[in-house]
């Protein structure tokens, strides 16, 4: 087991290096840099003459090392990350990138993980219901719902929920708290208010995954229910409940678990769009803003982290899969 994990880690190493390099290339692809944005701001808002602004910006470029060749900058960036966990400096926040990311990562992960749990639990339960009630009215209804869930754009779903909650139920939507609770200390009321805000992004981000899990679970369970060992279990007189939950369901969970790993970064990217609509203090709006202002170390680090999360969660999914399915060996 340990050997397996170690081998996978070693194998992942070149991928990780490529990921970091590719992220840096992508982020450096736009013409100009943050200082170009800043130069324009200095001229238009601080009233500097173009010449002064250019000189000041050039000075800052030198200070931050932005004038050095591309490969040197990449080397410094990745070197600092590996050696001291320093992801560079965020120009727009005027703080280290790691501080910006850590301060928002908690909420981002909370939304993503809850959406993940929501999509797995609801998806699997509905999938089991659909497979065991094949062809029934409920099955058809859920199948249509699943297609809808796969087809609705995240941001549109967020808009619709927001509209309904605000104008039909008069609830406050957007952010994680109602205005009166934003800076209040934690109380029961604040917690309830938090939950009232939290479920919206969780449902929006989790919808597509729920629909997908449901369809996969239904198809798989139907396959498994036709297999011989299920017939054996039935013919030896086991209750239908035992046949399904103890024998069939366990074997049809495999692709869902494999998907657990792949899904994480997709949840995070769904979160980017959703939080832009709902105005959540998570990584989404920060990433968007960093891209537009070319705050490159911030944008690049986040892009890289997304890919790293995928590599790691795939590894975790492999380990869990072996734990659930004894047929898989780590040799």
């Amino acid at each position: 087991m340990t050997a397996f994990i170690l081998r996978r880690l070693v194998y992942a190493l070149p991928t990780l290096i490529l990921i970091s390099f590719f992220s840096f290339v992508v982020i450096n692809a736009p013409p100009g840099d943050y200082m170009t944005t800043m130069q324009a701001t200095l001229v238009s808002q601080a009233g500097m003459s173009p010449g002064e602004a250019r000189a000041l910006v050039q000075q800052m470029r030198e200070a931050y090392g932005l004038d050095r060749p591309f490969l040197v900058r990449y080397g410094q960036w990745i070197g600092n990350i590996v050696l001291s966990g320093d992801f560079g400096f965020s120009f727009s926040f005027r703080r280290p990138v790691s501080e910006v990311i850590w301060s928002r990562l908690g909420m981002t992960l909370l939304v993503a993980l809850l959406a993940h749990m929501f999509s797995v639990i609801v998806g699997v339960l509905i999938g089991i219901y659909s497979a065991t009630h094949r062809g029934s009215l409920g099955d058809s209804a859920f199948t249509v719902l699943a297609f809808l869930g796969l087809s609705i754009p995240n941001f549109f779903l967020a808009l619709v929920i927001m509209y309904v909650l605000v104008f039909n139920f008069g609830q406050h939507v957007g952010g994680f708290f109602s205005p009166q609770y934003v800076i209040a200390p934690w109380t029961w009321g604040r917690f309830v208010d938090f939950l009232q805000h939290l479920w919206v992004p969780v449902v929006v981000v989790g919808t597509a995954g729920t629909a997908r899990n449901m369809r996969v679970m239904r198809a798989n369970l139907l396959d498994v229910l036709n297999s011989n060992y299920v017939r054996t279990a039935r013919s030896k007189g086991l209750s239908e409940r035992k046949v399904i939950y103890k024998h069939a369901v366990r074997n049809s969970l495999q692709p869902i678990i494999m998907y657990l790993g792949v899904a994480m970064p997709f949840l995070l990217s769904g979160e980017i769009v959703t939080s832009a609509v709902l105005n959540l203090p998570t990584m989404g709006p920060v990433f968007l803003n960093a891209l537009v202002t070319q705050d490159m170390y911030l944008a690049g680090s986040f892009l890289m982290l997304l890919a790293v999360v995928l590599v790691i969660s795939n590894l975790l999914a492999d380990i869990v899969l072996g734990w659930v399915d004894p047929r898989i060996s780590y040799a």
Binding site: I19, V26, P31, S269, G270, L291, A307
Partner: peptide
């Protein structure tokens, strides 16, 4: 295969976003 693996390790939307800001 390596290129495919690399491109598939990124969630598509953030990558689309990052590249579309590169359009002048």
């Amino acid at each position: 295969q390596r290129i495919i693996e690399l491109l598939l390790s990124f969630p598509t939307l953030p990558l689309f976003m990052a590249l579309s800001v590169a359009i002048p």
